[in-house]
């Protein structure tokens, strides 16, 4: 098994460890973490920073009756059972194509998803997230799966916010290099990138926190359909 070579970078991982990312962006980062032991270690260290910051925060007195109130409720809250130790099967289990946490959103068989064709060789499928009660509609990030046929490149586009693309199967190549399973591409407004799917095609998770704008002639046709 190879490990990814394109990573989210420290600042995005700090946002994840601190809990500042919304669900869609967290989903892309956490699914990358499943495939990237090195970023998992980084996040564990960043959580340790969170623990140290909590330790040195200026404490704020709690209501003196609060402890009593909690102690009185302990018996209503039996310990959560420790998860059973995973049974180690004697022969290797097949590796699911879709790692957690993405698998609990979409299952492990992308062919069964309700794909929408955007153009020849390019399909997409929106991923439902928790309903958000705060914030104006459309202000949150969106997550979708994209499926590109061999050699297919989406029309040139720019981003208002950031776009994260996590490769799940196959790969693509753009100005920044080759991206395979587990690699995460982070593109912001300054990048006008032109990814092209490799020979085996590409299945990826795409998350964007701003309106995606295709540039060029095809963009005029596609923009109404791809409202991120």
């Amino acid at each position: 098994m190879t490990v990814p070579t394109h990573h989210p970078g420290d600042t995005l991982l700090i946002d994840y460890a601190g809990g500042a990312l919304d669900e869609a962006v967290s989903l892309a980062v956490a699914t990358h973490l499943a495939l990237c032991p090195c970023c998992r270690l980084n996040v564990a260290e960043m959580e340790a920073v969170g623990g140290a910051l909590l330790e040195e925060i200026e404490p704020e007195a709690v209501d003196p009756t609060s402890l009593e109130a909690v102690l009185a409720r302990l018996d209503e809250h039996p310990p959560l059972p420790r998860a059973a130790a995973p049974v180690r099967p004697s022969k290797p289990v097949p590796v699911p194509l879709i790692p957690e946490p993405l698998r609990r959103y979409i299952g492990d068989d992308p062919s069964r998803l309700p794909w929408t064709r955007l153009m020849r060789g390019m399909d997409c499928c929106d991923i439902p997230l928790s309903r958000t009660l705060s914030g104006p509609p459309g202000s949150r990030s969106k997550a979708r799966l994209m499926r590109l046929g061999p050699g297919v490149g989406p029309p040139h586009h720019t981003h208002r916010g950031i776009e994260l693309t996590l490769v799940l199967d196959g790969g693509f190549t753009d100005d920044l290099g080759q991206f395979g399973r587990g690699d995460l591409s982070v593109a912001d407004g300054s990048i006008r990138h032109r990814p092209v799917a490799d020979e085996e095609g590409c299945l990826c998770l795409a998350v964007t926190d701003g309106l995606l704008r295709f540039t060029g002639a095809l963009g005029l046709i596609l923009n109404p359909f791809v409202k991120f």
């Binding site: 956490a30 790692p99 993405l102």
Partner: peptide, 25 residues
């Protein structure tokens, strides 16, 4: 807990027992 209560969102996290998890070298 605060993401759950204040934002009413799930926090996607890895499952350490997932067979798809790529182990540390």
């Amino acid at each position: 807990k605060r993401i759950d209560v204040l934002r009413r969102e799930q926090r996607p996290e890895i499952d350490p027992d997932d067979p798809a998890l790529v182990p540390a070298l």
